[in-house]
Amino acid sequence: MTEPADFDHDLATQVLIELYSEIPPPSKLVTGHFHSGGDYRVVRPDGVGSWYLLYTAGGTGQYLLGPDRLTLRHGDLVLVSPGTPHDYGTVGTYWESWWAHFQPRREWHGWLSLPQAMPGLSYVRLTRSSETDRVVSAFDRLHRDAQRAGLSPTGDTELNLLEKSVATELTMNGIEEVLLVAAASLRQNTQHLDPRVQLVLDAIRTDPARPHTLTSLAGIAQISVSRLAHLFKEQVGDSIMNVVVALRLQRAAELLGATDMSVAQIARAVGFESPHYFSRQFGRRFGMAPTSHRSAVRNPELELY
């Protein structure tokens, strides 16, 4: 660790910033629990090839993405997609965080479509003690299971292959539990949405492949386009068209894993007119091309770290 750094210091002065060069390979599952001081910062301009789940259990942290910043406090859960730049660290003197780098199981993609706070970065604030306590418990268990499976440098190397396999599955189950808590929290919160926003959400979720436009959705809600756009962003935390695209890409990921349809066929089936545009958006969302995603979900490889 170098000398303490101001989190807002220009990236040109890297001498004051800990620049992490050890980046987990995309196929490796890695977990951790940090109690970080005021000089803690991670900068990875190109991101990583895996998904990154980060939960703030105490203190204050901050995530920067271009000109945008997101302050992280107790109960904040962040999900960063592959390829999204990493620039985060402690604000003040203390930050406690749990984290995991992972590749999702195929059936998880519905839970990865959380509200985006920044491009490539989803964010959920858990406010109920039942949620925050469960997330901390899940992270604690999955971290210990990861150590038993040898998925961390301090892992147990004495277990046989069957025991390591079971411990690895338990680690993945813990990540799944965290994602489910976040998804359930969002569903509970949306029960109190404005009825007009709920109508629009229902229409999009029922058939995301339809040629939805702001005008057509405003007609469903029977309010002006500008009013709907403002109300939707305020209550859902993301724009209407971002939600439409996210749901289409989620469905595309499912079809890639479950069918032999071509990329062009899947693009059309989920509502994209241009296969090239679809592939570009898919890459931004999942950090890999559609064909690479299909290979990954059909031939998963989990290496020990």
Rank of each mutant, 00 (worst) to 15 (best):
M1V: 09
E3P: 00
E3R: 12
A12F: 09
A12W: 05
S21L: 06
P25C: 04
P26W: 01
K28Q: 07
H35Q: 13
R44T: 08
G49S: 08
W51T: 01
W51C: 04
L53Y: 07
L54Y: 15
Y55S: 04
A57P: 00
G61W: 01
Y63C: 03
L70E: 08
G75H: 08
G83R: 08
T84D: 05
T84G: 03
H86F: 15
Y88I: 10
T90Y: 07
T93N: 14
W95M: 06
G110W: 09
L112M: 12
P115I: 13
Y123M: 06
V124Q: 04
L126P: 08
S129M: 10
S129E: 14
D133W: 03
R134T: 13
A138N: 12
D140F: 11
D145G: 04
A146C: 03
S152K: 10
P153Y: 03
T154M: 05
T154L: 14
G155K: 02
G155A: 03
L159D: 02
L161Q: 14
L162I: 08
S165C: 01
V166P: 00
V166Q: 01
A167S: 13
T168I: 08
L179A: 03
R187T: 05
Q188K: 12
H192K: 15
H192G: 13
Q198L: 07
Q198N: 05
V200H: 05
P208I: 06
R210F: 13
P211R: 12
H212G: 09
T213A: 12
T213M: 15
S216E: 11
I220H: 07
S224Y: 09
S224F: 02
R227T: 14
L231E: 14
K233I: 02
Q235H: 07
V236H: 02
V236I: 14
V236G: 02
I240H: 08
I240P: 12
N242W: 09
V244G: 04
V245D: 07
A246L: 09
A246F: 07
A258Q: 09
T259S: 11
S262H: 07
S262M: 11
Q265V: 10
I266R: 08
R268F: 14
S279L: 05
Q281A: 10
F286H: 08
F286Q: 11
M288G: 07
P290L: 04
P290Q: 02
S292Y: 04
H293Y: 15
R294H: 06
P300V: 03
E301Q: 05
E303K: 01
L304K: 04
